[in-house]
Structure formats: C-alpha cells, structure tokens
Design a protein around this nucleic acid. Structure first.
Lengths: 345, 345
DNA sequence: ATGAAAGCGCTAACAG
DNA sequence: CTGTTAGCGCTTTCAT
C-alpha cells in the first residue's frame, strides 16, 4: 500500500487533540499545559511539551481567535508605502514588535481614505490584537479611526486625526519648524518660503501653523505653497516661486525630503545656486537626502523611539486597558544640518 | 434606563444568525442566500440581502477560515521594505489584488532568512489564500518557500529560489545585462566593472552570469565586486576601484540604483567625472535615479506587469489548481538611458 | 427549497 | 489538578 501525500495541501499541521492524545491527556489539559493558564502537574506538563515538540505543534491562531482570545498579531496601516519615510517607520515597528514575539500585518492605504477604511476593517476582521495607524487625512480618516479604536487598542503614529480621542505618538512639529527657522535666520536668511501641502496631513498642518507664527517677517509668513508630498510638486513649486524674480525667497523650507529633492533639482536646472542663492531644507531625514549635491539639511524624526513607544502604548501585555485613552506623546525632533542650508558666501 | 455602550469593544458586528433572524429564516438559508452556494427562493434571498445590508453584515473571515474556506486575503513577504524597489512592487500587487476585491497582508523579512520563515508561517497560520514572495536568499530561503508552496498557492516574484519547483514571475536578468553592456559598448566604453552582491540574490546572480559571459573582454569579465544592495557599498566599491588608477574601468554597472547612487556620489567626491571619465548605471529605475546629477541610466523592471501576472498565476478564482506548478514567466526589462551613461566628450 | 445538526480548533466555565 | 461540556461564526452535509 502506498502512502499518498495530500496533493492539495501538504502534510497537515498537528492539532491540539493529537498532542493531547500522544501525551495521554484531555485536550483541555494540554491547552492549559501549553498556555500556562492553569496549573498542571509537572510531569504531565512535561509530557505535553514533549508531545507538542514531537508533532511540531503550534496553536492555531484562527481557532484561538474564534474563541475570542488574543491572536498575537498587530495590524498597521500606512498612508503611502512609496514615501520612503514609512518603510523606515514600518521597519522600526517590526523591530519593536519582534522583540515581543508578535508579528505585524501591514497594509498600504495608497493615500486614499476609502482604501484606508477598507484595510482597517480587513485587519479588524482578522482579529488583530491592536492597530497602529498613521492616518491619511486628519479629518476624513477620523470616522474610520474612531470606529477602529472603539473595537481594538489603537495608536496613531506620526500623523493623527483631529477629534478622535485616541493615543498618539509623534514628533513635535512646531519645535521642528522653530529649529529650522532659527537655523536659517542664524545663517542670514530673511525671506523664507514654505513648500507645504494642503491641510489634510496633520504633521504638515502643525508645521504651517508654527511657520506662520515664527517666520521672521510678514512677507515670509504669507509664503506658504500647498501641494503634495512629491518630488514633482517640489519642482513645480520652484517654477512658481522663480516666476517673480523680485520676490524670490532666500530659503525654501520643504514639507518633506521628496519635495526638497525635487526643488533642489529644479533649482539646479534653472541655474539657481544652493545654498548660494537659496537655502533648501527637508523633513524626515530619509536616506536619500545625503545623496544630493549639496546634501540636504533635514529634520530627523525619532523613528525608532516613536515605534517603541507606540508598541508600549498598545499595552499588549496588560490584561485590558481602556481604549481611546487619548494620550499624546510628543517627542523631540532633531535638526540635521548639511550643505543645502549653509550660509551664503 | 440608559443604553450603555460596550466599553471594551464598541458595537459588535452583526452575526449571520442575527441576519437570519431578521429575515425570518434559518442561518443556513441565510448563508446560502448570501454566498449563492445553493439556490434559494428569490423573495427569501431578497429578504436576506435587505437584512444583511440593514445590519451592515459582513461575513466573518475567521469563522469561514475555521471551516476551511477561502479567506479573501493574500499574504506577501518582501526581503527588504526599505529598498525602494519593493514598495513599488507592493503597490503594484495591491493594485492588482484590489481590482479583485481581496486584501493584502504584507510582511518584511528585513533581509533575514529566519525572519522570513517566521513571517511565512504566521501568514499560513492566518489562512491566507495564497502567498506572493520575493525570497531573501536563493538557497537559504528554499526550504521555507517549498514548505509554504506545499500548503498554499504561491508565486515568487522578482527573485526566486533554486530547486523549489514553484511558480515565478520576473524580468529577464540576462537580457537586462545584455542591453546594458551593448549600450555601454555602443557609447565607446571598453573597461567595464560590475558592482554586484554575493550569490544570495537570484536576480543579481543571473546578472553576474550574463555579465561574465557578455562583457567585452577578459579584464572586464573578471571585474565583479561583491557587496550588498546599499548606498554604502556603492561608495566603498568606488574607493576600492579607484585604488589602482591604471586599472580604472570606464563604466560601472551597479546591481541596483542604491549602489549606483552611492557610487555616483563617491565618484563626485573623488573628483571623477560622470559620464566623462566613468559611466554609471543602476537597476530597478527607482524614483531617485532621476534626482542625481547626472541622472541615472537604469533598467526598468515591468513592475505592474509582474504584479498582474503574479496575481493571475495565483488563480484565486479557479477552484483548485495544482500547487508547485513550476511555471516561470520571464518578462522583458527596459533600458532607460539617461545622462550617467552618455558617451564621453 | 429549507431546517436541523455537525464540526472546523480552541479554551473558559463548571464540575468533580 | 483534570475531564466534561459548551460554543465562538460559519458552511455543509443530511434529512425532510
């Protein structure tokens, strides 16, 4: 007689029942022995352990999830995986969770609030123990985030939604802007401009407010250009700005490194010296900022710290924490000065 | 009397039982009406539909998964989410799946075969319907990939493992290398060097073979430098290469854009003209290649097509396909010529 | 065409 | 300390 392998699915994974059988105990005893939820006689526990190892048993998270228990997985939704800042955040979160023996399921919202809502629901359906989310839109993402927070532990990272009273970890955007402005002014810049985005992104919004408050003069304060977080927008913004030569600022604060790199390139194309004529700064300190010529001054967000604190806030070890706690943990950003903002000769 | 909201979890999602109750039928009938697995009287079907909509019912994938049915989710494991090529692939796959109404759960292996194996297992445990994977290591990833392929539909994208007989979609790396070499030779380059990686990455391995076969002379063929897919390696490789001035090549083929950008920067730092003294080319045509000065010549992989074909190969609509089919779909890469490889003056 | 019942894998509550 | 029982939500037999 030939032993036929299951064509459709390979060797099936061992079930708890089989472990129990091999150990000569009832499944519930095996369950207790493996999870440690109740005391079990030491020799029985050992027998179960051995049986489990022999059969390469791993508890089925689906069965456990159906029962309403923890699944050991965390979901994460990022607004745009193609923006190199978010892979860095993802990696940091993975690292933080990994230390904890949990796995991360990641989804990309493609900058679309509807996709974001779908992904959140899909993760909740899969019974993730918690959700880490950087919302696409500070207003339009709010309903989905609030709903999710009412069903599971949730921490917002980097970006946040207004009016949803749930936890958040991120950097102090106003402080970041103050650091930038002071640095530029200290280097003799007077006519600033902020190449920003519309109001949808909370971090940029906060920077705009700080910019309008702290920029050195009225003309600078009024010079806020709204686009998106892309290289293309950086280039287009430069075209707009250079249109009126008398008005040309001597410093461009860009809302992220992508915009700044696009601006740098376009300035070079148009024959404008950086930092000679115009200083340029970015945000996020992505790995690509050091590749440009000159290297890009930027503001580094403490990504690993944000990730660590987010995971800590989820409180996955504690039995039950109140959801929607509304804590806000705001960390210090760090100005990284490079050539693109040096004082003009 | 006050209606108290469930503090721990918000309003629970409607269950099939409640839908059935509201429609005045048995749960099994409701199930049939919703899934269409068996015929149901039209008026009953309509009533169930209405009840489901009213209660905002969505079938619980956990319950369904426990029954052994499809879950409507696909898992993906990428070797390194921080490498900007992979976010692009992820986005393309998301797009392809989204058109199909499925959601993607993504995991990052952090270039670590052990992490990769864990992530694969975690995804299988969660009963994904299929797996899309770009293996970290062409040899060391093989056992995990093979195991996974025996349990679920699996397609390898971009990279692959040797000796696992399962489906693959990617670009023709040998053709890519031939295109590059011909282009460089056509522009008068004779002394080539390949800044590559070790043998762990299948795509690079294939390029090395093609390079050693097609490079224009023996000296060029021997000049293969092995490091990793990083900006830092690109810079270090340039230092090594410039050490012996008599041996300096006039063209550097780099195994990806990150290496090429690092090389470009270091060449600039060391006062070496590109493309005047040395041509530089990359791979993957990431968005950052156009930001350098000069812009980077690269090879574009047909990312969206790879993703579309991978999803099609998964055959999620077909009832049951044989796993481990071992089909290999090899698509044409496209040479994107830019300034970094122009003919020297 | 529909209802009843069984069971996917697991663990909490309840006896003993 | 351990076995029994029940049931999470769903679908799929098997009977009507």
């Amino acid at each position: 007689m030939v032993v036929t392998k299951d064509v459709a699915g390979g060797p099936a994974r061992a079930r708890l029942r089989e472990v129990a059988e091999l150990a000569g105990v009832h499944p519930s005893t095996a369950s207790r022995a493996l999870s440690g939820s109740r005391a079990v006689r030491p020799d029985v526990a050992a027998a179960v352990q051995r049986a489990a190892e022999k059969l390469d048993y791993r508890v089925d998270p689906i069965g456990r999830a159906l029962r309403g228990e923890r699944t050991g997985t965390v979901g994460m939704v990022v607004p745009d995986i193609v923006n190199p800042f978010f892979p860095a955040v993802v990696q940091a979160v993975e690292r933080a969770l990994h230390a904890d023996g949990r796995s991360l399921f990641l989804c990309d919202a493609s900058n679309d609030v509807r996709v974001e809502a779908e992904r959140i629901e899909a993760l909740l359906d899969r019974r993730v123990d918690a959700l880490i989310i950087s919302p696409v839109h500070q207003y339009d993402s709010a309903p989905a985030v609030r709903r999710a927070a009412s069903r599971v532990r949730l921490v917002q990272v980097d970006r946040s939604c207004v009016g949803v009273g749930c936890d958040f970890v991120g950097a102090d955007q106003a402080e970041a802007m103050r650091l930038l402005i002071r640095h530029l002014v200290d280097n003799g810049r007077r006519n600033l401009a902020f190449v920003a985005t519309d109001d949808s992104i909370s971090t940029v919004s906060e920077r705009i407010v700080a910019y309008e408050q702290h920029a050195p003069n009225v003309r600078s304060r009024r010079r806020v250009f709204r686009g998106d977080l892309s290289v293309e927008w950086g280039a287009r913004a430069v075209d707009m700005i250079l249109q009126d030569p008398r008005q040309t600022p001597d410093a461009l604060i860009c809302a992220n490194d992508l915009i700044a790199l696009g601006a740098l390139k376009q300035l070079r194309t148009r024959g404008c010296q950086v930092p000679g004529n115009i200083a340029v700064t970015g945000f996020d300190d992505t790995p690509f900022g050091v590749l440009s010529e000159p290297e890009l001054t930027s503001v580094r967000q403490p990504v690993q710290q944000i990730a660590d604190e987010a995971v800590r806030m989820l409180g996955l070890t504690r039995p039950r924490s109140t959801p929607m706690a509304g804590r806000r943990l705001v960390l210090h950003p760090e100005l990284v000065v490079r050539g693109s903002s040096a004082a003009p000769a």
